[in-house]
Design a protein around this nucleic acid. Structure first.
Lengths: 378, 378
DNA sequence: CATGCCCCTTTGAACGTTCAAACCCTCAGA
DNA sequence: TCTGAGGGTTTGAACGTTCAAAGGGGCATG
């Protein structure tokens, strides 16, 4: 088989030294144009590619970015991180990096893997997806000065909004803006009693999503009290909690949910209550759970019961569920962008969108806006 | 920060030479027990880990396995490969390998990526998921003697069964056995007119799945002719095709599908025909599309119209669709197993399940049995 | 006592790259 | 003519590991 082409082979063919070839690759401006062309011709003719291993030995840089692949938990939300991973792979490749995967059951196992990886394959950086309250991984990495970016804000001690100084780079999607848009859409459709189905207080992501809904109602002069249910993430949990909101003395007519799992449960609840006669379907029943309430207390007779989910998963698409969609490819590109900025700090006079010129003058985070995908369920 | 611990540091602390430390790691049987213990103590105390880059330079082995991450096409079937990928990552880690990801739009781009990777990061092997008819990738890799395994049989020129001599290692799931089990289940439930909804002839996977259904009917003395529809993979396509089978002069009462996408479409068709009165629901309508036919031609009155999908995706779980489940974690483990066998050929007198002792005496493929997951839809 | 052998260990070199420093020209200025 | 500077190129060393070969001690054999 064709044996490996080395930088020496290229040098010989171009009639120059190893170092000159190396310079053509890494610092072309140091090499005279004529020489450069000759070397480039040789590189092309021989099909030379620099050995990562040798390069890494000398420079200490592996051009590898490590990230974790999660088992899809309930199988619905898992697809979000998979799409993110795909975007990450593509963006990293464009920037000259490759993605190295690892699996880990819990935080302890993940940190063990950090240690293992840092010692052996020596990735240049880590990307941590789905941060959580009390997440110990950022601190571990920071102590060792290992570059990393999180997809997800560092949720402060209060369990609420992000703290002012994150101390590390992150990219996130503005969940509150997403639920606000969903709520706004429902208000525009004429709904007033719009409920929220989310997770128990204390989860950063969940509280954020709830806040967007609440503030939009308040801005409209509607008191969100009593329109809110919190439960674990799951289809069955969602159905149960939605049922309570639908059977309250003053029932809701629309529901914004913190996940597609919950929203799917809510759709089931709506269907089931209708089928058992506890809600009256006055219109034609479609396969997607779009029903019409008639004769309920409150003045919104004739409005369809709408449900909006979060994450725009394949399941949402399959069952016709409206949902808030995260720009995952952009989020991934943002992560890679922040990382490369960490590796080679940009020159001071760099152009860039004026976001939050922090103390050190560099933007270290990125907050993206989600979009609302409307389907039959709303 | 603590500077990198090298093999020399360990050697110094243990009072031996570099090579002895290396031997403790790679060929412990060469080292006297007492020395071995002393070296191991030093390794532990210093937290030493061998540098992959340096090791790779000398041995030419990167302990990296490259595989592609696909964008989830229709969003439903994508999850299958994601689960496979997760299994692959876990199995590879156990065998001391890491997964390197790449993305590529088409075959041409993928082969370019092969070339790029082989030159730079030099993965020890490739795993190709989802092979197809006329797949050019295996030939490319084989020509260059690059080790690889495919998840999916090499589908022969006839577009039908696998050829006798694959020429490379593969792991696959016996799709025909899966549809056969599904068909058998429906027969046991009393169905006779069991349809199949699949893809156009020429796709290896699709033809395989169809054959399991057909042979099971034939074995029962039922002629499969006219019970079969072929269409592109997609929910809308599936709904359209299912509709035709349901409205035939002698309609089917159950349907086995080549994918969950098609099955989901079929469920919609059943629902929709029922709602419009073209099928009569004689029982209680559940949310999952389980209906009962009454008064149709044929003698199977009162049987529920059953639908069974393929792949057991999250969507199937969400909508209560029975489905054939592939053992993806085992398939992934099988791929890693075959690869490690390629790297270090096993000693001749090795124990192993008697499968197909090929000409060279080594098993180079693995065919796994799927299982049937029953839910409300059947 | 020399020889050979086995077991365990050490030594020198090599993998392919880039860093740091040296080198060689040419040209300008004193 | 000497000195210095600077552009362009080369040289030697080093990164951390393993391969191939050599070294050395103990013991049995001739």
């Amino acid at each position: 088989m064709a044996t490996k082409v080395t930088i020496t082979d290229v040098a010989r063919r171009a009639g120059v030294s190893r170092q000159t070839v190396s310079n053509v690759l890494n610092s072309p401006e140091l090499v005279r144009e004529e020489t450069r062309d000759r070397v480039r011709e040789a590189i092309g003719a021989l099909g030379y590619r620099a050995s990562q291993a040798a390069r890494q030995m000398r420079t200490g840089r592996s051009r590898l970015i490590a990230t974790r692949i999660q088992p899809d938990r309930d199988g619905i939300n898992g697809s979000v991180l998979d799409r993110f991973l795909h975007g990450l792979t593509a963006s990293a490749a464009q920037a000259g990096y490759r993605i190295l995967l690892y699996a880990a059951g819990d935080e302890r196992a993940e940190i063990d893997t950090f240690e293992e990886l840092v010692g052996s394959h020596e990735p240049d950086a880590f990307v941590l997806a789905s941060t959580y309250y009390g997440d110990g991984r950022p601190a571990w990495l920071r102590e060792r000065r290992l570059p990393f970016v999180t997809f997800g804000r560092p949720w402060g001690n209060a369990g609420g909004q992000a703290t002012g100084d994150p101390g590390h780079a992150w990219v996130d999607v503005d969940g509150a803006a997403g639920t606000a848009a969903a709520t706004r859409h429902l208000l525009d459709a004429g709904h007033r009693r719009i409920g929220f189905l989310g997770w128990p207080t204390g989860s950063g992501v969940g509280d954020d999503r709830r806040s967007g809904w609440a503030r939009t109602l308040v801005a409209e002069g509607i008191d969100p009290d009593g329109l809110n249910q919190a439960t674990d993430d799951g289809v069955a949990d969602g159905e149960k909690a939605a049922r309570e909101l639908l059977r309250a003395e003053r029932p809701i007519t629309a529901l914004v949910c913190a996940s597609d799992s919950l929203a799917l449960g809510a759709l089931h609840a709506v269907r089931s209550l209708t089928a058992s006669g506890q809600l009256t379907a006055s219109g034609r029943l479609t396969a997607e759970g779009r029903l019409t309430i008639a004769g309920q207390a409150g003045g919104e007779e004739g409005l369809p019961v709408s449900v909006i989910g979060f994450d725009d998963t394949p399941v949402a698409k399959a069952v016709g569920l409206s949902s808030v969609s995260q720009p995952l490819a952009e989020a991934a590109a943002g992560c890679v962008g922040l990382l490369t900025r960490l590796f080679d700090p940009p020159s001071p006079g760099d152009p860039g969108a004026p976001d939050d010129p922090g103390a050190d003058g560099s933007r270290t985070h990125l907050l993206l806006r989600p979009s609302l995908v409307l389907r039959q369920s709303s």
